[in-house]
Simulated scan of single mutants.
Amino acid sequence: MSRRAKRTRGTTPPTLTTDSPCPCGLPATYGECCGRFHRGEEPAPTAELLMRSRYSAFVAHDAAYLLRTWHSSTRPRHLELDPGMQWTTLEVVATTDGSAFHTTGTVTFRARYRHHGKRGELHECSNFEREKGAWVYVDGTFIE
């Protein structure tokens, strides 16, 4: 077997500690930022923070959090995350509504990734709603 065939790069999610930089791109540690949402200590207070925490959950391969923060009407029964997907950077492009004073909101973002070594980008406008008082992801539209 060649040296290249033995590589498993991108198959193991990064180890995030409370002191790691948060993958969502905000200038805080993972523990102070998205980690508190992932641990269930509190819900994300805005649609943008929910979107950022969901991105961080994709980075950490935390399918349970993703399902927990998905609207009941659009949530899949199961979610299998591709171990070859490595999310690298997040850029929030725009937000509409989604604050403590709203019941709906949108977040447009670009998420860059490597999939089995090939670079790519997901550009999406995501829709969020409050369900039982908490922000949840409803669906999204891909932007080309």
Rank of each mutant, 00 (worst) to 15 (best):
H102W: 05
G117Q: 10
P13H: 09
T18R: 14
P45F: 08
Y55H: 10
E121L: 13
E131S: 07
C125R: 15
G105R: 08
H71V: 03
H71K: 07
V92R: 07
C24S: 12
M85E: 14
F37K: 00
H61S: 15
R68L: 11
H102E: 14
E32P: 00
F142L: 09
E131A: 09
Y137V: 02
T15L: 13
P83S: 12
S20G: 12
R119C: 10
Y65A: 06
P14K: 02
T15Y: 08
W87R: 01
T11F: 11
R52N: 06
T12C: 05
E121S: 13
T106V: 00
Y137D: 02
G10W: 05
T106A: 02
P45C: 12
G133D: 11
F109W: 06
F37H: 10
Y113T: 03
Y113M: 06
E124T: 04
A64S: 14
S2A: 05
G133P: 02
L26W: 13
R3A: 12
E144S: 03
L50S: 04
F142M: 11
G98Q: 05
R110K: 15
C125M: 13
P13M: 06
T89Q: 14
I143S: 07
T141F: 00
T103E: 15
A100M: 08
R7V: 02
T95W: 03
E32G: 00
A63G: 15
K132G: 11
T104M: 10
S73H: 14
K118N: 13
L81Q: 14
E42F: 01
E80I: 09
V92E: 12
P23Y: 11
V92A: 07
P83Q: 11
Q86N: 07
F109V: 03
P43N: 15
M51A: 11
Y113S: 07
T74F: 05
E124F: 05
L90C: 10
P14M: 06
L122V: 02
R3N: 09
V136L: 07
T141D: 13
T11S: 12
R68F: 01
A64Q: 15
K132F: 07
F128T: 01
E121V: 14
R130S: 06
L50A: 08
R52G: 07
G120R: 09
E121W: 04
E129S: 11
C24N: 12
H78I: 01
W70M: 04
C34H: 06
G84Y: 00
T46A: 09
A60V: 03
A47Y: 09
A28D: 00
L79N: 13
G133V: 03
F58W: 02
T88Q: 15
W87Q: 05
I143Q: 10
E91V: 00
L66E: 10
G35W: 11
P43T: 14
T88P: 03
E42A: 14
Y30Q: 11
R4V: 07
T29N: 13
L16C: 04
